[in-house]
Design a protein around this nucleic acid. Sequence first.
DNA 1: TCAATCCGTATC
DNA 2: ATACGGATTGAC
Length: 666
Amino acid sequence: MGTKGARAEREPAERLPVARVCVDVPLPHLDRPFDYLVAAEDDEAAQPGVRVKVRFAGQQVSGFLLERAEASGHQGRLAYLERVVSAERVLDPEIVRLARAVAQRYAGSLTDVLRLAVPPRHARVEAQAVPVVETPESGGDPPPAPGGWDAYPAGPPYLRALEEGRAARAVWSALPGEQWPARIAEAAAATVRGGRGVVIVVADARDLDRVDRALEAVLGAGRHVALNAALGPAERYRRFLAASRHRVPVVVGTRAAVWAPVARLGLVVIWDDGDDVHAEPRTPYPHAREVLLTRAQLADCAALVGGFARTGEAQLLLETGWAREIAADRVVLRRRSPGMAPTGDDPQLARDPGAVSARLPSLCWQTARQALQAGAPVLVQVPRRGYLPSVACAECRTPARCPHCAGPLGLSGARDVPVCHWCGRASAAYSCPACGAQRLRASVTGARRTAEELGRAFPGVPVRTSGRDEILTTVPAEAAVVVATPGAEPVAEGGYGAVLLLDTWALLSRSDLRAAEETMRRWLNASALARPAPEGGRVIVVADGSLAPVQALLRWDPGWFAARELAERRELGFPPAARMASVTGQPEAVADLLALARLPEETEILGPVPVDERDGAGPAQERMLLRVGRGRAAALAHALHEAAGVRSAKKAALSVRIQVDPADLF
DNA sequence: TCAATCCGTATC
DNA sequence: ATACGGATTGAC
């Protein structure tokens, strides 16, 4: 006698015989629960949150059991659950509510969101009784000293609020040089002392390692798990289960960790929310910060949005009063900040273009030399390769250099005029200093080439690179030149003696909505690794000192910059001041969807703009942008989802992609 | 008049 | 996808 007796033999469970199931079918018009009967023999296992198999439209599909009910509103006859896949309740009711809210916000289906929220099952791991919780190896950051939050007037009261279980919500501007992983661990520990759980989201594996170690140091062993996107399916599921089974009160991880179930959630944390890896690339493309804030709202728990930089979205949280600011006083800030200076025009260079010092603006060169002589490492932030190829003389192949700052020249987009990758100045009438030729050709100068040149500029000093292929985590406190691309800067023990920011092209040559914010973020994140000025730390930015982001950097005032940015976006009607959505696909499909969509009043329709075809294959696609005020954001998402549902119900052949808050705007 | 087939629609 | 119902068609 097996568990799957013939259909006729099955009896419905006595209590709550109806199961509401979210079936794993991505069609938007089927985005609602379907009711099934629970067989008496499945009664015990068929609890809310388990995976089930059901017959749906003649097919076996998997799904999640959302809830049990006494009766169904369905008119026709109910089918039985085919089977309960396992009694493991992987879907917490809190996560279902969150997933629903996120699906609504992003015009997506619950099914799509649940795919992001619950990792694939691994039966063998599930069978093992007690999940193994890894212990991180020590190294890197010093153990946290108590009182780190004392540097911020609002810090100690905030920790008290966490310990008392209050729903304290804060935007935290970290001081330069801050041991932020330790601060986050302390906030987590305060919450845990109050008997509540914590979810922490960071951008990448390096940040995750640092927080992992800080949590270990503050909480002790086995009190948290780290969910790394790079883990294999078995280990990923093992750690998910450790959280789901409430074996640990704290979960830290990259963006998917925002969905981790924990018992009695008390605090959610996101670090560096401006990093674009927080945007989920799979449909419906939710952003980890938005998921996290929604979660805090629904769970009525505390939230901490921290970083050296501040996004427009974080600024909006402050300006609407949703969150309070945690920032240091100017006096403390001045004591902790490195000395900051811009450098632009440099008459020295023109006089001596062939000399070693011509490889860098002379202020950079002098600052770096001083730091190296003092035995300190120097960080050089350079542009990532591949965005803008640099150029060389078409005749003699001498790299074309900026007459002002000696940075590499590049040709951006359709313009013929070469522009400096470092300081952004255009060089209209360029002629090669070596041969006098005026024609240029594309070449590639990346971090490695820059490193070689710097190696020649500082003979006898080791040069190390950290970039996409090979990322250094830390460097020792000794004289070395460290060339890194944005986001790959190693942490220096004791801090860098000098930080040189040569990555200014992003600010000056990109039309992207977030170009200035992103540049600011990169500069602050690198500058935060410098020693404080009293210990000799200096930051030199190769850019025009009158530009607003440069001003904000020199004063270390991310709040001022974010407020300015947000005000500008309000004026222009850009997110987050307004809500935008994009509809992408073949022109007929896009037109069809928009014709069906019952868009809210005063929806602005912008476009279409052609989309660059990936690989050149496939028919041409276009993109339309829709814009509404924040008050109509929900109505816009609903209208788009509904229209997508109508299209999928009538089996429209051509698909369209709907993105609310698209990551790439202009 | 009845069965075979087509089309649209729901999917529990 | 598949399956079901109702409409449509065509042969007797």
